[in-house]
Simulated assay, not measured.
Amino acid sequence: MIRVLGLAAEAGIPETLAAFSGPDVRLHTPDFPIGHLGVSWSGPRLGGSYRFRRARTGWGPWLPLSPGDPSTSGRRTALVPAGHAVAYQLTPPPGAVDVETVAINTTDGPIVTAPAASRQLRGFRFVSRAGWGADESLRFGADGSEIFPQAYFGVQTLTVHHTVTANLDPNPASTVRAIYFFHTVSEDFGDIGYHLLIDQNGTVYEGRYSGPDPTPVFNGHLGDEPQLCNATHAGGFNAGNLGIALLGDFTSAVPTPAARTTLVRVLAALASSTGVDPLGQVNYVNPISGATRTVPAIATHRNWSPTACPGDSLYPDLPELRAEVQALLLATDGPLG
């Protein structure tokens, strides 16, 4: 699990939340190995940079900060792999305000090499929340109540994302833990925002906690009208919207063949189970707020909000991906997965 070292005695805030504000370069040296660095800010997209110091090699080069995608709060966020860094410095984009950083210790925990089988996602290499090391206590407030309780809705759309993290990831489970911490604690989502994640090897990771039953994503059974657990991957349009994220940054790179193949198969399995038409358009209606949007049945994050997600290299591939999902459904007898 994510090991949080040290608590601020008065506020009860983990020291991993090393926050600061201001436009100048700041040095931060937490007392734990830094696995990932999360950054959030308001204002301009471009111009930020960061660097890490490592115990044996000292300071590395300054690297450009990702432009960051707007979160549900409208703030820009970026999550940077740090390896085993011992310190970091950040120069925010010029004009950025309310800059916050979070050093996340994801260096401890399981390195998944043989994912457990899943009855509900048979045919996929699948890792449950326990398998990738989710610290379930993070989902609960100080009073013991769940911060983001489960709620279930009929499935209207499937949405593809990218996580803007490392493309050749030596420990994807660590990255999933970092995303979980960043979403749950730093962004106050109460849980990881995606329902499923896929790494470069084609392994599928369970995302959003969907209840005590063994079925990921849904409320314990598929049935004729499976009910989707609400998540936080598309601000304002989450209820009934199933989010699948590819681990990596596909601004200029493309997914590995293994990741892309698994994405097609997962989308086909979900479309088969939920009745979503891979080639269709959907007049989406948020059952909570009443907000509407006409989108492809297999959508991307940029269909819902002004974001670059799932990346300029992946986005043009969506028509072909939808066609491959449809072809796989037509070639398969009965439900997939």
Results as ranks from 00 to 15, higher is better:
2 I>R: 15
5 L>I: 15
8 A>C: 14
12 G>C: 14
14 P>S: 11
20 F>N: 12
21 S>V: 15
25 V>L: 07
31 D>M: 10
36 H>D: 12
43 G>V: 01
43 G>D: 02
47 G>Q: 01
49 S>Q: 13
57 T>C: 07
57 T>V: 09
63 L>Y: 07
64 P>K: 15
64 P>D: 14
68 G>W: 11
71 S>G: 14
73 S>M: 05
76 R>T: 03
80 V>T: 13
81 P>C: 09
87 A>T: 06
90 L>H: 06
93 P>I: 12
98 D>G: 09
99 V>M: 08
99 V>L: 10
103 A>V: 02
103 A>C: 03
106 T>I: 04
108 D>F: 12
125 R>N: 12
126 F>A: 00
127 V>P: 00
133 G>M: 03
145 S>G: 03
146 E>C: 13
148 F>E: 09
150 Q>W: 05
151 A>S: 13
156 Q>W: 09
158 L>H: 07
170 P>R: 04
170 P>W: 05
174 S>R: 12
175 T>I: 04
181 F>A: 07
187 E>M: 14
187 E>G: 06
190 G>N: 05
194 Y>V: 09
195 H>A: 04
200 Q>C: 02
202 G>W: 01
203 T>C: 04
205 Y>S: 00
206 E>T: 00
207 G>T: 00
209 Y>E: 03
222 L>I: 15
224 D>F: 13
227 Q>V: 06
232 T>H: 15
240 G>A: 07
247 L>W: 00
254 V>F: 07
263 L>C: 04
264 V>E: 09
265 R>G: 00
265 R>W: 02
267 L>A: 05
269 A>P: 02
272 S>K: 10
273 S>C: 11
274 T>K: 02
275 G>A: 04
278 P>M: 07
283 N>L: 12
284 Y>A: 07
290 G>K: 05
291 A>D: 03
291 A>T: 02
292 T>Y: 04
294 T>D: 05
298 I>Y: 03
307 T>S: 15
314 L>V: 09
324 E>N: 12
325 V>A: 08
325 V>F: 06
329 L>S: 14
329 L>K: 14
332 T>P: 02
334 G>K: 14
335 P>F: 10
336 L>A: 03
